[in-house]
Design a protein around this nucleic acid. Structure first.
Lengths: 227, 227
DNA sequence: ACAAAAGTGTTTAGATTACACCCATGA
DNA sequence: TCATGGGTGTAATCTAAACACTTTTGT
């Protein structure tokens, strides 16, 4: 090792994942019963230690694959949590990510084998350590991001109706939007492409399915949307 | 140590500080010539290793105090950088903060003793490793924050004119604002208190000094401002 | 016929923008 | 008196928000 780097302390480095899903018009979080002491059995974010040859983001993706069976999941760094006293007895610095997954795509058996459960955001159980704060910050970030992009779209199927999109935004922001105004605002962004297919399961009249216009770059999809 | 934590790799953990200042109507960055190999002598953000009993934020505050002589500096976490290859030869995970300081309050002798220099944001030298990316992200964060709060105010003296505030915002956003509209918008937030004192050095007529109304809480100072 | 969502249109209130204009004063 | 910033006012434009209304169709 290079001279200067010697003599500095090394730290346990972890990632914790705030895993968002969307089901039954509710935003949900995937939590796990902690498998070891201390506070074994209490509800916790899914986490893991960062290995020598991987970045935090890679570690988060690995953890997500291990517990949901999904690859290429939308991931966004929230913050590093580094209070020396954030866990009792041992010092672990944790980098928190939030991820958006489609619940119906998860590996059901794998998820249950960990004892994991989806909890509605509005009725979360008590969680360990500073995980409550992590969740709070992650939700804020998701809300911010959804305010100037279609970030939340990763929670919906490929094709979705404007009703489904509005209900998603209502779940993310925990408030209601006027149906007419929402439609006009979203469509004015010209980020969605109308398909020829209709969904008849949620209305008599039937609503067209839309998809994200994939011809647009990320930059373009980040046009300002204020909610 | 608790059983479960054994056997996981430990990492060198550093903080790097993007130090913003404001001088001569320009946003500036404090950079240091790196004092050791590799890339000794090249321009770098000021950084340091996180010690055993301190959080990353405390480490950043310590580093800032060591190199500018200032305590209680405004600090905000930007992101963790953890690509295993971000530094050659050795793996260091770095948590980046940005800070806002009043250049005239710095310990001049201390700063020069490190060989540090203030660089205009628009004319930065080449910097080492991923520090360019760190700077880019930090500026974006500062711009975002200044958009819904008076964040940047920490770069100005206690008392400032609306001209000075506008020039600051122009430096942060790298664009111009209409003088009349800027004044009306800022004052409509009711976050500033007019003093009885006038500054005559920048105009014939003289402009009143303003201060941040300290009776307001942080929450209140974060009223939406869109720029 | 009715309920419920789809989809469109209208009206109002506020905010943003560009820009005109007077004031004060040192050079 | 002229240039410069201080400070105020106004009209044009854009956006958000509230809400009325028509369409469609299974029950």
């Amino acid at each position: 090792m290079v001279e200067f780097y010697k003599g500095h302390p090394k730290h346990l480095l972890a990632v914790d994942c705030v895993i968002f899903g969307y089901q039954e018009e509710e935003l949900k979080l995937l939590l796990y019963p902690r498998g070891f002491e201390p506070v074994k059995g209490k509800w916790s974010l899914m986490g893991g230690f960062v290995q020598e040859p991987e970045s935090c983001e890679e570690a988060a993706a690995r953890v997500l694959a291990e517990c949901t069976g999904l690859e290429n999941i939308y991931l966004e760094q929230v913050s590093a949590f580094s209070d020396p006293a954030r866990e009792p007895q041992v010092r672990v610095v944790s980098v928190v990510y939030y991820s958006l997954i489609r619940i119906h795509e998860q590996d059901q058996a794998l998820v249950s084998s960990h004892g994991a459960m989806w909890w509605p955001l509005t009725r979360l159980p008590e969680v360990i350590f500073d995980h409550g704060e992590m969740i709070r910050k992650a939700l804020l970030r998701l809300q911010q991001k959804a305010g100037y992009s279609l970030a939340g779209i990763e929670l919906l199927p490929e094709k979705f109706t404007l009703l489904q999109l509005r209900k998603l935004y209502e779940a993310i922001y925990q408030r209601n939007f006027d149906a007419g105004n929402f439609r006009k605002k979203i469509l004015s962004l010209e980020l969605l492409r109308k398909t020829n297919e209709k969904n008849f399961s949620e209305s008599r009249k039937g609503a067209y399915y839309y998809t994200v216009d994939s011809s647009l770059t990320d930059v373009e999809t980040e046009r300002i949307v204020k909610f």
